[in-house]
Design a binder for these strands. Structure first.
Lengths: 333, 333
DNA sequence: CGTCAAAAAGGAAGCGCTTCCTTTCTTGCG
DNA sequence: CGCAAGAAAGGAAGCGCTTCCTTTTTGACG
């Protein structure tokens, strides 16, 4: 292993100067700085991150917190999509991404300690059904945290987050249904304890009201395929005249579609469906889903940048950013 | 921040003894060990990982290498499924998972240096289309590596890997088609530079030959939906009498299904389809796919355990394990 | 009860880097 | 040409932990 001392020796300077040169400190004469850089290059020197962390008290790495219960749908949910952005953005900097699992049986205090010991400068949390208690828990942790998705407690807690414009997206979705001439419009929700669900429900409701259309056909589900199927059946039973439905994610749409097929309803002839997310599922099913796309990738990278800001200027927060959604027109409306 | 010295002081022992107690070294008297443990508990002590790494020269963390080009299908491919197993297994130990991105434009040498500087004790690689050059590259890195998927070079390289029994799985898939009375059986392959593809092709071919059925209807694709659609069309054009097809993953099956639908072929009435992987897609499409399930989760955790073995006993390797696949009967045959 | 080997505990160095503080080198100006 | 002030470089301490080596304690046995 080649150390900074080796570099310094080769460059003919002290270790101190070598360190400064490597870190671009201005007080080093350009000539020497170059010598150090060259020496580092020829020797293939890479600073030992452990030593650096120890000396600096900083780690240049951020954590992505994943509840053990959520691991099971990394692939399904929007999680993986946003993870892309996170991974890319982290990689582009000099930071490292550490995955921290919040074990199911772990006590709060233990988790908090684990987190603060996890050599990370900050943490990111994707807010999902299983994570709803985290904001409150982490609010008094020493670690800067940024959420993807507005925490329900965002009003009284000093939290930073990034989110899509769920209200606006849902409004657009409903608008699409109305424009298609639908008048009896239902909604299949995700877990109600999530901010996203509430926001989307609000957007849907607002739009319908604005058009003087009833907004009573609400079926609650859980963002999963099975739940979507059940909820669709429930809606059909409650009001067979339903001719439009807004489903809060693609996975539930797949379930709803199956129910509709088995009940002999043709989409989009008999009934229009607008989904949310635009994941792989959206083009894998038949008909392909008209859906509200979230800028997952951007959200992911934005989250990383926001966290970085929060780490460098802890008092400037909380940071809260909302990104617009996009309509993807396909065959289900 | 509470340090080991604080603990030692409270427990009334030296830092050395405290360290030993914390690490369960046998030469410390049970009485004192307990005192130290208690002190640590009351103080909420967590060893500083940076200091520990520096002193031990070990990091207790492993890397998951992801090529930048692959980030885009974390959700689609089997990647996320296997990642679950990895994450769980790593979390269960005292290790940490670090995601290391292999940037697209990065030179080999730079990447290697980056990797060895990334405070990890070993690395894992999911072998995919974009990773085929990694085994050769990493073979002379100082870092222990385990692959998911047999590298093509496995014969002449000293590599460790875990894999599904792709040959056997493909054989079973073909067998399913034959049993369903199909006699003109095609295959849609993934990227040919991958070991999995070659293994599955072999299994398919072997089975057909054993039954005296022609194995010439091969269409090459890329494991993606669009590729599957195109390949299916190609097969249909080459031989309209085709009545069975083995598709090497679910995503391509979704594409193939779309083509079949647009050509007016009904699955499974006119043509049977057997897929591979059993991801979410398999139940989202219509008809639901009969598919060969890979034990992704197990593969992931096995990979971590294998890597651990490789780290602790570098000379015992290479380790190579193959896990059986499982048939999941649904509606496409 | 003394001796000595084994067990237990402690002292201190050191992992590789940063950074405070001191020393040495430059430079501008009288 | 000499001096002071600022720039540049270096010495050395220290981040929190492990571990080698030494010292102290323990206890079995003569």
């Amino acid at each position: 292993m080649v150390t900074l001392d080796d570099v310094a020796r080769l460059a003919g300077v002290s270790r101190t100067t070598a360190s400064r040169a490597m870190n671009g400190v201005a007080t080093v004469k350009p000539i020497r700085a170059q010598a150090v850089l060259n020496a580092a290059e020829t020797l293939g020197f890479r600073p030992n991150p452990a030593a650096r962390s120890l000396a600096r008290g900083r780690h240049d790495s951020v954590a992505l917190i994943i509840p053990e219960t959520d691991i099971w749908d990394i692939g399904n949910s929007f999680l993986s999509a946003a993870m892309q952005g996170v991974i890319r953005e982290v990689a582009a900097s000099e930071q490292q991404l550490v995955m921290v699992i919040r074990a199911a049986g772990e006590t709060d205090e233990k988790f908090l300690r684990f987190l603060s010991a996890s050599h990370v400068d900050g943490a990111m949390v994707f807010l999902e059904a299983h994570t709803t208690e985290l904001p409150r828990l982490l609010s008094d942790a020493a670690v800067p945290v940024v959420y993807l998705g507005r925490p329900l407690e965002s009003d009284d807690l000093d939290v930073s987050y990034v989110d899509s414009d769920n209200v606006g997206g849902a409004r657009t979705a409903a608008e699409l249904l109305v424009k298609a001439g639908r008048r009896r419009i239902a909604v299949i929700t995700g877990s109600m304890e999530l901010g996203v669900t509430q926001d989307r429900l609000r957007g849907w409701s607002e739009c319908l009201k604005a058009h003087g259309i009833a907004d009573d056909l609400v079926a609650h589900a859980d963002f999963l395929q099975g739940g979507g199927a059940v909820a669709m059946a429930e809606i059909l039973d409650r009001d067979p005249t339903v001719d439009g439905v807004f489903v809060m994610n693609d996975l539930m749409s797949a379930g709803a579609l199956a129910t509709l097929r088995s009940r002999g309803r043709v989409v989009p002839d008999d009934l229009s469906l607008v989904s949310f997310d635009d994941t792989v599922i959206a083009t894998a099913v038949e008909p392909r889903l008209t859906t509200i796309a979230q800028p997952f990738d951007e959200l992911g990278s934005l989250m990383v940048r926001t966290l970085r800001d929060l780490i460098t200027q802890p008092d400037a927060g909380p940071f809260r950013v909302t990104l617009p959604t996009k309509v993807v027109l396909r065959d289900s409306v």
